[in-house]
Simulated scan of single mutants.
Amino acid sequence: MNKSVAVLMSTYNGEKYIREQIDSVLVQKNVDISLIVRDDSSKDGTTSILKEYEKAGKLRLLTGINMGVGNSFMELLYQSPDADYYAFCDQDDIWLQNKMEVAITKLEKLETKAPGLYISNQTLVNEDGKKIKTRYQTEPKHKLENVIFANYIAGCTMVMNQNLRNILIQQKHRPSQEFLELRIHDVWVMLVANLSGKIIYDKNSYILYRQHQNNVVGAKSMALHEKLHDKYKRMVTKKYKKARSKTAIELQRCFEGEISQKDKEILTLFQHANSIRGVYNIMNHPKLKKAILGNKVIFVMKSLTGWI
């Protein structure tokens, strides 16, 4: 009997590419797919398309208020049916037919029934689906300390087993909606998987990750002036201040009493990242000093002014 997979897709104004994505999900090989879609208050023809598929019995459609990408995906997970495995799905990519089969095969090899998360590389394609490049040439860092600084793993590559899903949906383990506006669903899942389970990285890609102007999140490249504008917007937006210390605080709140001493030490250091002593301790911690992104002088300045 094939393993069951609940595929969780959040949509917002995705009418241009959504049919191609849905069709690629529904033809996954050697698995039993249940596609659950939550539309985040689209203003285009997305919901009409989704209702067509729902009427044909090909998906289950959820609707609601606009929550933003992170909260919408986590709401899908909270409402997900029982299945052997769970996968996040964007609205504008294309899945190769063996994407789920490969992920499940690797997760089944875990020695124990530990909470497990599969993640993979991506094939970047243009709007027409033509290959640009493979995203990562070497394995992106994805340990706890790396993800707190910056997450490079896309939610659309994630497949988790039921044990990890059951941890994530527990009421006490659910992050606040405000946090998921700051650091979205894929960051949270990576953090929890680091704390509670095992992560399997696949250097191969089984997803065509479409790059276009309307990507909500993604690997799209930006010109220098666009990067500077994006950084400026974050600097003047209050909610982005102290994002890393807020991440550490939220993890400790949601997993109080369940965190190893080693991970607790890292989270405690991040909570004090905006003081001189905190910066010193991070820069001298054997793991954290390796996880610092970019120039260390800039890191010190950003920490002391509240932008870490």
Rank of each mutant, 00 (worst) to 15 (best):
H142S: 07
K131G: 04
V236W: 03
R38G: 07
V217S: 14
Q122T: 11
V25R: 09
G68R: 03
I308K: 09
I282K: 03
L288A: 05
M158I: 08
Y85L: 06
Q28E: 13
I266S: 03
E54Q: 15
I94L: 12
E226H: 09
N194W: 02
A114S: 12
T305N: 08
G14E: 13
D32S: 10
Y240E: 08
K58G: 08
M190L: 10
D40P: 01
E250M: 15
S205V: 02
G155I: 07
L293G: 10
L124V: 10
I132L: 15
V300M: 12
V192M: 06
I22G: 01
A83W: 05
N281C: 02
M222R: 11
K106D: 08
S120K: 03
K113F: 09
N146H: 14
L96S: 12
V187N: 08
V125C: 10
D263Q: 08
N194T: 05
L251Y: 06
L96Y: 09
S221A: 12
I119S: 06
E258K: 01
D84F: 03
R135K: 08
L59S: 03
N2K: 12
A150T: 07
K241T: 11
K238E: 12
T305F: 13
L168F: 04
V297R: 12
L144S: 04
L208F: 07
K231P: 00
H229I: 00
Y12V: 03
N98K: 14
V192Q: 03
S260L: 07
A273W: 09
W188E: 02
V27C: 12
M1V: 13
L191Q: 02
T47G: 10
